[in-house]
Design a protein around this nucleic acid. Structure first.
Lengths: 140, 140
DNA sequence: TCGATTGTGTGAATTATTTCACACAATATT
DNA sequence: AATATTGTGTGAAATAATTCACACAATCGA
């Protein structure tokens, strides 16, 4: 019932890039400034790019930048990109996993709760974080 | 970002007991009917009792029953009883864990989101599940 | 072409979760 | 009181998930 470090790292990186004005930032830089282990950062950034949140540029002066505007990127999108779909209870994901299919009275309740939580996280946009400018500088 | 099996099991047991009209049900029975490994069930039920959600009765014909009404028991309460406090992001729980304390722009956003999620889960009451009577019988 | 950069795949280390065993304490029924 | 039944508490084995390192391939810019 908590965000993994991977998800946290992903958020940090995206926040960082949202403040970069479209200039690509390298894995090493994002790793350093976000306190993310280098190779783990590489894997995470790659996944964010696969999800269409970031865009990668290879070669010198390359790196990652946002693939769309900060208004269009939500907490949910980032979290799901690296952690997989937000599934509040397994039974929603794969009911074959549950021997009680068909007569479990919890299913509807979970479906409803699930949707509410996802909507909630979908409502939190990266732009909201960025707008709260803090003079201390950088690190998302 | 998902409920553990332990939390799921806890919910099942409570739902089951909420339909038992105050008659104590044994660990073995709850284990069987809820498809919960026996000793794991014992541990979970004990924790629910410690949290004041259930009440235990030793001896023959003993077992567990609700300690209060189904209206007073929420998803949040049950989940927190067995999984510990719902902490959506570690930094909220223990900021010393984060090297970025003081200049991280995410903290406020997490605090707000955290509160919303907890409120949401607190709003889901066991009675809601029970009220949706299903003829198929039992197992929460 | 050279050097800096990203992409990929494997797997190990670490941590968390899940499961269970075992010995003991408490209670109710007879 | 005896006995069967229930819960209590500790801990540890088994599994699964998470986190990260390493090595090398591919790509771009100058």
């Amino acid at each position: 019932m908590r965000l993994t470090k991977k998800g946290d790292y992903a958020l940090r990186a995206v926040i960082q890039l949202a403040s970069a004005d479209g200039v690509p930032k390298s894995i090493s830089h994002l790793s350093k400034v976000g306190a993310i282990p280098r190779n783990f950062a590489a894997k995470i950034l790659k996944e964010l790019a696969n999800a269409g949140i970031l865009k990668s540029y290879a070669g010198k002066n390359g790196g990652y930048r946002l693939a769309k505007s900060a208004e269009e990127i939500s907490f949910r999108e980032i979290i799901e990109a690296v952690e997989g779909p937000i599934i509040i209870n397994r039974c929603i994901e794969d009911s074959s996993d549950c021997s009680r299919v068909g007569f479990c009275r919890m299913y509807d309740a979970w479906m409803t709760t699930q949707r509410k939580v996802v909507d909630l996280l979908d409502g939190v946009r990266i732009s909201e974080i960025i707008d709260k400018k803090i003079d201390t500088f950088s690190v998302g």
